[in-house]
Each structure stands twice: as C-alpha cells, then as structure tokens.
Simulated scan of single mutants.
Amino acid sequence: MGNGKNDTQGYAAFLKANEGRSLSKFEYLYMVMRTSAISNDFYIFFSKLFCPTVVVKGEGYFIEENFDSDRYQECIDQGQTSSEIAGWLNLVEITALFEDMSYEGACALSVIISDCWSVTLAREFPASGFISKVLFEDELGEVYVTLCKA
C-alpha cells in the first residue's frame, strides 16, 4: 500500500466500504476503471511497462517505448557502442513513476516488471546476451529497471 494521498482511495478503503462482501482485486480494478477518468491510451501505455516492445539497434536491445533516438545518436557520436548505451537508455525509474508508492512497494513492483521484461527477452531474443536488471538505490530511495548486456 502506498504512503501518499491516494491511500484513502486504495484497495483497503474499497474493502472497508464494501464490508461484508467477498471482493477480488480485479473487482477493485473494475471499480477504479469505471470511476476514474483515465484515457484508453493510458491503459495501453501502462501495459507496455510490463510487456514492452524490444527493438534492436546495432548490438543493443532497447525498450521502444522509452527509446530516445537523439540521445542514442549523441552517445554513438561520442564513441559508445549500442550495447553500452542500452543500460542507460532503457533505464526506467519506478519510484518516479509511482511517487505515492512506498520504497518497499516500488522494490516489489520493480522485481515484477523486471521478470516480465526477462520473459519478453527470452521469448523474442533468447540469444541476445541481454538481461533485465533491477537497481536498488537504498540511500536515495530510488528503484530502477533496465535492460543491459549480461
């Protein structure tokens, strides 16, 4: 459970408001989807966090939804290889995406995202030599997920 302003609208509050009923986590999801003004694009983009499109550029494997072609070209121009660049360009800070989530929650979510990315790599690019990795910055309270050379 998060530690921010949305806690009063979270799953625990949903269960409390529906006391006496057996409710699944998917029923909570349905309620949020029906009562929130979230665009359809958001759902597609959010799902890409767990099941991204991986593209190949040179010797590197990149999360397409997070790829910055200008930054990539700058790094190439500086003499970096595409496999060296990948770890940085694929970096997604989970704690920045979910600001109201606790550090522990962000760590748990990051492991899930990384596992999903690993499955995508194994299915689409089994011989890539790339892995999904979670970076825990305990002192800064930040958590990142990336694809990088093993």
Results as ranks from 00 to 15, higher is better:
Glu139Thr: 06
Leu15Val: 14
Thr146Lys: 05
Trp88Ile: 15
Lys48Phe: 00
Pro126Ser: 04
Gly4Arg: 06
Ser118Gln: 13
Gly87Val: 05
Glu64Leu: 07
Glu137Arg: 05
Cys107Trp: 00
Ala127Arg: 05
Thr53Ile: 06
Ser114Tyr: 04
Phe45Arg: 15
Val145Glu: 01
Asp41Cys: 09
Lys16Ile: 10
Gln78Tyr: 13
Glu93Phe: 03
Ser118Ile: 04
Ser118His: 09
Val32Glu: 07
Ile113Arg: 03
Met1Lys: 11
Leu109Pro: 00
Val134Ile: 01
Gly10Tyr: 00
Phe14Lys: 08
Ala150Leu: 06
Phe125Asn: 12
Ser102Asn: 06
Val111Gln: 13
Met101Phe: 02
Leu89Asn: 01
Tyr43Arg: 01
Gly87Ser: 10
Leu23Ser: 01
Asp7Val: 05
Glu59Trp: 05
Met31Ala: 15
Glu124Gly: 07
Ser82Tyr: 10
Ile113Phe: 04
Ala37Phe: 11
Glu19Ile: 12
Phe26Ala: 11
Phe46Asn: 07
Arg71Met: 12
Trp117Glu: 02
Ile94Ser: 01
Gln78Gly: 07
Ser47Glu: 13
Gly141Ala: 01
Leu15Ile: 15
Val143Gly: 01
Ala86Ile: 00
Met33Thr: 10
Gly79Gln: 12
Leu49Trp: 10
Met101Val: 05
Ala96Asn: 10
Asp7His: 02
Ser69Cys: 07
Cys75Arg: 13
Glu74His: 13
Asp70Leu: 14
Phe46Ser: 06
Ala127Gly: 06
Phe130Gln: 02
Gly10Glu: 05
Ala122Tyr: 07
Tyr103Phe: 13
Ser22Ile: 10
Glu104Asn: 02
Glu19His: 13
Thr53Asn: 12
Pro52Met: 14
Phe98Asn: 08
Ser102Glu: 06
Cys116Trp: 08
Asn90Arg: 14
Val111Tyr: 11
Ile112Ala: 10
Glu84Ser: 06
Lys5Leu: 05
Lys149Glu: 15
